[in-house]
Write a protein that binds this DNA or RNA. Sequence first.
DNA 1: CCCTAATAATTAGCTCCCTAATTATCGTCA
DNA 2: TGACGATAATTAGGGAGCTAATTATTAGGG
Lengths: 173, 173
Amino acid sequence: MNDEDARAGATPTLDQARKQIARYGLDADPQAVLVAVRLMAAGARLDRASEVHFSRSGLSTGRYRLLVDLEDSDGEKSPSHLARSLGVSRATVTGLVIGLEREGLVARRASTEDGRGAVVVLTARGAQRLRDMAADHFARLEALVDGLSVEERGLFLDLLERITQRIGALTAD
Amino acid sequence: MNDEDARAGATPTLDQARKQIARYGLDADPQAVLVAVRLMAAGARLDRASEVHFSRSGLSTGRYRLLVDLEDSDGEKSPSHLARSLGVSRATVTGLVIGLEREGLVARRASTEDGRGAVVVLTARGAQRLRDMAADHFARLEALVDGLSVEERGLFLDLLERITQRIGALTAD
DNA sequence: CCCTAATAATTAGCTCCCTAATTATCGTCA
DNA sequence: TGACGATAATTAGGGAGCTAATTATTAGGG
């Protein structure tokens, strides 16, 4: 699968949206549907690209985010708090920590205050990994939005925020 | 994990971006980085919400997209073409088709023209499933972008397109 | 003081999608 | 025509994340 194909698959057209809506005799707004579908497709593609990006440093998106979160928290945090701030389940954190611990990028110790709790600690090696990645990582993130002016970036952030606020509409009963 | 926590985890702040950049003495633009990070986070969240959404109809995002693609193609298409238009690998299509076939939503027959090839066919039951989902599905997609005016939607599409064009920057060597 | 409900972390088992390797067939070119 | 490189589909195996169930510990109410 080459880039062109991937793009073609990932970017449905307004016409497709129109046809799909018409097929069932609905009166949905094709443009609105297109925005939703394109964003979902873009999100999925970005997710995969992100995994590829981080895998070059021997990490995954989740592991990288966990390391950064630790560093933002003076190098240590409980799995529960990590789960909350990363927006993933505790089970997922357990899995991420196991992987990171195996590579020596974090360590785990029991909490001194809570017999049930644990604390995940960023190791020197983990911090070094982040340092090694930083320049390349941020350069690539910048390149991703290179095509937008500062004003456009601000606008995009605002619009994106207003859409993501409504993600619940997809899953609400 | 509740919605609030998920949101908190999914929406890093400009300040966090600034600190992370400063930590390594880089001169990246925090706002640019924030746009990239937010979009990635939004994509991941939308992906998961999408899976929840489709699972209510006994499908996954991938299976739904495959069914729609088939319907857009007069009800039949080869796995290779499906892979291309869906932007996933052929192995993934094989997996999706196996699942859909097990539920009787598609059928598989050998290609008459190419001894190597197969053809995936949308069954009556598959078409019915799409019909059953349509009203609710499109209503939810519309709800997702409810907060944006028509002009803003057009603008968002444009900006999103210009960012997704550069996804390759993440993975390029 | 004990019993129960809540919380912390882990484990087991699931789905999604991927890459790499395998098998079969096609098509071209010497 | 026979061999070789592409292409079709599948299989095997891996990583991400999820939910549900399990185990250990904490905190409250009778």
